[in-house]
Structures are given as C-alpha cells and as structure tokens.
Design a binder for these strands. Sequence first.
DNA 1: TATGAATGAGCCTTCATTCAT
DNA 2: AATGAATGAAGGCTCATTCAT
Lengths: 202, 202, 202, 202
Amino acid sequence: MSPKVVDKQKKRDKILRAALKVFSDRGIADFKMIDIAKAAGIGKGTIYEYFSSKEDVITGCFEIFMHDFGDILASGLGEKSNPKEKIINFFKLSFKYFSQHQEAMSVLFDFWAAGIPRKHGTPLIPSMKKEYFEFQKYLAAILEDGIKENYFKQHDTQTTALIILATLDGLMFQAVLGVIDIEDKSLPDKISNTLLEGILNE
Amino acid sequence: MSPKVVDKQKKRDKILRAALKVFSDRGIADFKMIDIAKAAGIGKGTIYEYFSSKEDVITGCFEIFMHDFGDILASGLGEKSNPKEKIINFFKLSFKYFSQHQEAMSVLFDFWAAGIPRKHGTPLIPSMKKEYFEFQKYLAAILEDGIKENYFKQHDTQTTALIILATLDGLMFQAVLGVIDIEDKSLPDKISNTLLEGILNE
Amino acid sequence: MSPKVVDKQKKRDKILRAALKVFSDRGIADFKMIDIAKAAGIGKGTIYEYFSSKEDVITGCFEIFMHDFGDILASGLGEKSNPKEKIINFFKLSFKYFSQHQEAMSVLFDFWAAGIPRKHGTPLIPSMKKEYFEFQKYLAAILEDGIKENYFKQHDTQTTALIILATLDGLMFQAVLGVIDIEDKSLPDKISNTLLEGILNE
Amino acid sequence: MSPKVVDKQKKRDKILRAALKVFSDRGIADFKMIDIAKAAGIGKGTIYEYFSSKEDVITGCFEIFMHDFGDILASGLGEKSNPKEKIINFFKLSFKYFSQHQEAMSVLFDFWAAGIPRKHGTPLIPSMKKEYFEFQKYLAAILEDGIKENYFKQHDTQTTALIILATLDGLMFQAVLGVIDIEDKSLPDKISNTLLEGILNE
DNA sequence: TATGAATGAGCCTTCATTCAT
DNA sequence: AATGAATGAAGGCTCATTCAT
C-alpha cells in the first residue's frame, strides 16, 4: 500500500555532490551524465528523476556551491571586530572553504566560464552577475563600517570591494593552477599588506 | 621563406581570428567547427588543412591571444620610468588590449577553464601555468627594480606580483560580467591606490 | 466467482476505459503508460497487476471496443424487418455508437494500423482479419435473407457485404478527419441510395 | 576546387523510397532511422543532411506518396468518356497503383492514423484533410459532368463523391488485411454495380 | 588547395518495466 | 494489492573528421 519513501531533497543533494566531484575531475565541458550516475552509485535514468536535464544539474550544482560558500562566510562573519581583520578573515574563510572542498575550486572556473553572457544563447548560469553583487555588498558593508569606525580612510568602497573580490578570484585561479598554495598561512597577511595599506588611516 | 609558406601562415591566422570571434560569441564549450568555417568564409574541410583537430584550433587561438597580449605589453613597456607608474601602466595596457579586443575578453575565461589541470585527461591548454609564470616574472622584475631604486619597500616581490596578476584577472572577469567598465579611466588609479600603497616607501 | 475476481475484472475494465481515452487524445503511436495510470487515477505499477505489457493494454482495449460495438449491433439487430432498412440500420447503429463514443472513433484507425500484417514482426492486433470476417458474415446474412425474401436481386453477397463494410469504414475515417458529420441524420439515406439501389429488385 | 556534386533532390527521393519500404515492413509506429539508412544504403547521419528529423521523413514520404498517386490518376484521367466508366476507372487506377506499389498500400493506413487530429499535439500529417478534399473535388467534378450529360440523376454529388472515396479507402484496408484481392479484375464492376446503380438514370 | 557530402561514434534523454515497501 | 522510485536498453540526433572530387 505504501510505496518506497525517499527523501527527495537528500537524494538530489547526493547527486549534486557526485556531480561536483565529476565536474572537478573532468571539467564541465567534458563530463557525461553516466559519469555522475556512476559517481553517485545510481542508474543513469535516476538522475532525470531529480533533474530535468544536464544543464539543470550544472545549475543545481552551482547553487549548492554558492550556498555552501555563503554558509562558510556567514559562520565566520562575526568573529573579528577589527575591520582589516574582517577582510583578512574573508580571505581566510575563502581559502579554508576551498581547501576543504578542492573539487569546488577546480569547478569554480568552469562556473565562471558558464556564467559569461554571450552573443549567442543564454549562459548556463545566468545568475552569476547577481551573485557577484551579493559578495560586493558583503565586502562594501565591512568597508563602510571600517570608515565609520574611523579605521579606514574615506574612499570608494564599492570599487574597493570589487578589487578585493577580484584579487580573491584571481588568487583562486592561481591556486587551481598550482601557482600558489592556499594552505600557506602567511598568504592572507601578505595579501592584506599589499591590498589594504592604501586605504588605512595612518 | 617561399610565398606559399607566408600564405599558409596568413590563412591560418585568418582562421584563428575567426575562431576567436566564434569562441567569444558561443563559448569554447559550445562552438562547432562549422561556425568557424562560416566566420572565416571558408569550407569546413579547409580548417583541417591548417589544423589537425578542434583542440588544435583552440590551442592555436590561445597562442595568438597570448602573443598579441605580449606584444601590447612589450610595446608599452619602456614608456614609464616611475615603477608605480609601470605597474599602473600594466593595468592600463591590459585594459586597453581587452577594450580593443572585446572578443578576447569573453574567451579569456574559457581559456582559463581550459587550462585547469584535471584528474582525468590532459587540459586543453597545458601551457597555462607556464604562461602565468611569465607574467609573474615580468611584474616581479618591475617590483625588484622599484626596490633597487628605493621606490618600493623591501618585500616578497614574487607574491606581490601574483597578487597584482590576480587582481587584474579578477577585474577582467568583472568586466566580462558587466560589473565594472574597463573603459573607466579612473579605475587604474583606484586600483593602484588600493593595491600599491602598502608597498610604497613613505 | 468470488467477489475478488469481479473486482479484478472491474478494475481491468476501468483501466481499459482510461486507456481508450488516452489513445484517443494522443494516438496509439504516442501514448505512455503513465498517461493511462494518470487517466485511471492509479499508480503506474498497478497497470502491470492487470496487464502484462503495453501491448497487452492495447490488445485488451481493442477487445472491449469490439465487444461494445458488437453489443450495439446485437441490441438493434431485430428491430427492422425490411432488409434494406436492416442495412441502413447497420450504418445508423454504427454512427450512433461512434457518436456516443467519440474516443473510440479516433482510436479505430490506430487499431487498423495496428492490425496490418507486416513483413517484420507480428502485428499488435493479429485478430483484425478474423474480426472483419465476423462483420462480413453478419452483413452477408442480412443480404442473403433479403434475396430469399425476394427483396434483393441475386448477387455476390459476400462481395457486397465487403463493399458495405468498406464504405462504413471509409466514412468513419472521414468523420474522424472532420470531412463528414455522423450526426447528420440524412446521411444513412444518402448512403443507402448510392449503395443499395444497384442490388434492389425493381 | 570543385566539391563533390550531388543531386540533392534525387538523393532525397532515394531516401524516401527506402523509407516507404521500411514503413511498409515495420509500420510507421515501429521503424528506426537506422532501418532507413540501411535500406537506402547510406549512413545514419546522411539522412539528416536531407531531413531535419524523423517526423520530417514521414511527412516527406506522405508527400511523394500523394504525388505519385496523383500522377497515376492524372495519367488515366482522359481515357474514358462514359462518366460511369470514369468512376470505375478511378477504382481501377487506384487498384493498379497499389498493386504496383504494395509498400504504399501497407503504409496508407499508417498515414491515416498519422493524419488524425488529436486533443494532444499536432498530427504528423496535418494536411490529410486538405488532401482528402482534393480527391472529393476530383470525383464530384466527374459526377457533375455526368449529371450535365444526363447520364446521372440529379443528386448530392459532394456526398456521393465522399461515399465513393469511403468505399475505395475501406476496400484498400481490406486489401491490406488480405480480405480482398485488388488484382481481381471482376472487382471494379462489382463495386460499380453496388455503388453506382442508385444514381443512374434509367 | 579547397570543399562539403558522407559518416558513425557517442551521448542525452525517454520510458516500459521491475520490485522493495 | 498498490505504488512510484529506480533502472538501463534503446534510439534520435549531433558533429568532428574524412575524403572523393
């Protein structure tokens, strides 16, 4: 009488975790649906019980990635009171997340490429710009607070926020390439020294 | 040496220019060989007279892109004597290049994604890391000069070079997304103020 | 004998009625098992408690269709004594049936196509020819009676029966296409005038 | 310099002939694209150089079928002057065509089923009704001529035309089922005797 | 040298059927 | 008995690549 009961959300999540692993190993440009099925230990057709298409898996994967990353940031948010420390902490938390989720790091740039608007067709991840603004807002708020607290000079916080984000993004790419090591504990301070001195009040 | 060779080279280049346009419009993940043939105004089979495979076109395209970009940097290299100006100039020249080659900007991140090493298979652009080191060397040399000239503090120039590169890369991504405008003439100074103050000697 | 068996039969019938509706809406070539389940208000798997396969549902559906249609004919059989009226009545009863079962009308030609013998494989409805002979027998008997009663000329009743059946079938197709309207009460007489005059005794 | 030249129209036609054969052998509901490729002696992908989809092949096949059949009718059109003979000739020509194109006969009823309008989706052959009206027009014109020539009684020629068409269609179905034999030379006269006497002027 | 018709490997997706609950 | 989650066989279609012209 009662059919098999499955936690749909949980299984969807399980598939997405498998997908992330596959994306990381083969790249979004190259993976096959069967790869994900195998990685998730399920049949090929089962994926389509939870996702409508290949693209839907990619999009879903981006969403949990953003969600996870957002959680990490939120969890470490209130820890520091010094505004400069907060920014450094942003780098530290980011490094920590990607250090713990190596797969996410490789995939990040596939996501980027998939988020770029094109003359032809809709990008796979149309929400990329919106997501970017969220991060900008997050950092700009910290900078604004820093100015209010007289810790930072008066300056264009929106642009600085973008520059900080740009640096993080670029560093993540270097990490993926193997040019830098995000486990290197001295890195956040070096970044801070290069990036933030210009906006400090003497 | 013979005119035939020159012609071959010229046509190969023509195809690559067409390819870059196509990559920009559709993304490297999505383009078809026929797109390039149409864009180049030639037959589908003709591409294979100049390239051994689809991958070969992508790789070739990355090469002319790097070559072009290198030329721009080299051409503007000697213009400034002030080390800080040299770094700012690096951003200015980069912005100028991508401003003049909008297609290249969209494709940049496809190239990035194609350069990431994977657990499975060889990346499409295996030379990415090597190229990255070239840029690092270029910037580190400027920074070292700046230290010798007592313009910059003593500091870890290799890491600073990477941070500067990271920022440029990240900003390019923002430009592609439409978050920043690289035509904005105030941008290089803002970047310099945020990035370089920390390493300036008072 | 036991109530269970009756229930089984009843539910099987319910599924077949739902199937007929689905066949009508989507065509036999296009329907899915899930469509029938939904139309019957049951689970997908439940169909397989009553039918061994998709083909079995189609066959079963054809059977109830023939059964229903046969009932209609049998019920109206004895009403007329005039042989010509009996033939006209055959058309009238057929039109009445399909008028009351619009779904059956659309499906009729799917059944036809499914009844055609092929070089490759067995037709879905192998009994089509046998069923056809039943109708031929039914009509030929009426015609033979008419000859005995001196109402009809001596003629090849078997062939005439087939011609009458052919005309009915063809008209049903026109009705499905929307070329004729089987509700049109003048139609049976027009048919009779065209079809039967040739065999009437002056 | 000059590429391979192919008579696109001829090859398209070749594929359609192969398709008709396949439809006949397996039915439209059951055939695979690879069947057609094999029957045409070409590769699977080649079909898609000439047709956009599986459906497009079916539609194209219906078109050449109608074209061929129209040609047969047109070729035998003027041969008879007696209006009754013209109608009989219509049957004779139809029988001749299907006798010479056995494949077309089996497929006819697949086409029919594919022409039926459905509540869900567009029929594969939406032009079926339009085609039907052409035949009706063709026969009604012959009947009208017969009336003018005082050969036929005044009567509803449109309906008679439909009844004649209906009979032909139904007979073709019987032929496919193997109930009648269209090679039987006595058949057209029997049909005429049953069908047309009622509209003859005594 | 240039071409585009031909090809088939390969992959996404569907859906009839199964079976654990 | 009833269910619907799971499955994988199957097939339509794409497109990089080849090669006859």
